[in-house]
Design a protein around this nucleic acid. Structure first.
Lengths: 169, 169
DNA sequence: TTCCGTATTGTTACTTTATAACATTTAATC
DNA sequence: GATTAAATGTTATAAAGTAACAATACGGAA
């Protein structure tokens, strides 16, 4: 999956293409790390990639049930736990929801922690690189004697489209 | 309430003193803004200040009930909504919990969004100023065409005490 | 291959967190 | 004091997440 144009991460693009490439990358990453991407785990990831937005666990569960797969909450939560632990899916704390990672580690198999942009108007979510901010946050924490292990950075506001609507209409 | 020494925000201090000063500041701020700090709202804030840590809504509810006050979930959630809206209490997304603000707006009545340091070991939480990082995060979001309205920044890791224990014991 | 131990999934039941909807009370303003 | 809006009380339920144990599938050793 190509790195999204930073100015257009809210824009549409070829979902099917990006979906298949993401699946392949995750599959490769699992193979390299001897992780088991079981059918259930793969299916949960696919559902997230297909929807291409943040989904609640119970929404995913419903989708699984529609397909005849077994379905109780722990099934989904366990698959999500695996996917989140290995960085293939992100959890949005503010929304109690999950989203497939948009730029899976290419070859590095390293988890990364992004910045999430959550639109207050249309509820769309974009994932952007945290970049140098991650280190700055760690340094800020370090100044208080705190050792940072992971970060949650979520920004709420207006996406380009909704901002435009407010300004024009 | 004095601004905490940045290097000691996890340290103990005179809770009773800081509690009373915080109540007074919130009370003043409400008066200036024509907000109604009702007995219920004041009591919920006091409970949070007394505990001096992050508490779940139901934990607060239980405390209220012990005191004979009426108690159903909406009671607490509504008080918390008021307190959070006006910046007297913060919500910790990662913990589904609430914490009294440690450095209430002094005279400015402006909400501020801090950085939270959550200890993975002892679960203590410290509130630190986000400082210039807030603007940097907004700028990062702005580069994607996004208008930031509010931020969630929570760092998980080890507080000074727990870090010390790991290193020494 | 067959057996064994471990990882994964299935299943039941439950806990925790949060909110909708409407009744009642309290408070501010005229 | 009557009117209206804000706040609280109350009932019921939705939404999110987990504990505990049973059944199954898988990966490697004998």
């Amino acid at each position: 999956m190509a790195m999204p144009d930073p100015e257009n991460i809210f824009e549409h693009h070829d979902h099917r293409q990006c979906r298949h490439e993401a699946m392949r990358q995750v599959s490769d990453s699992c193979a390299r790390q001897h992780l088991r991407l079981t059918p259930l785990r793969a299916r949960v990831l696919e559902i997230l990639l297909e929807s291409h937005r943040a989904m609640g666990a119970y929404e995913i569960l419903e989708r699984l049930r529609e397909e005849g797969q077994a379905g109780q909450p722990p099934t989904v939560y366990r698959a999500l736990e695996f996917l989140v632990t290995h960085g293939f899916v992100h959890r949005l704390e503010r929304l109690n929801a999950f989203m497939a990672c948009c730029h899976v580690n290419r070859g590095t198999d390293k988890r990364h922690e992004p910045l999430f942009l959550i639109c207050n108007s249309c509820r769309k979510v974009a994932e952007a690189p945290l970049g140098v901010l991650g280190r700055k946050i760690d340094r800020q924490a370090g100044a208080m004697g705190f050792v940072a292990q992971s970060r949650v950075v979520e920004v709420l506001g207006l996406c380009p489209a909704c901002r435009g609507e407010l300004e024009n209409g």
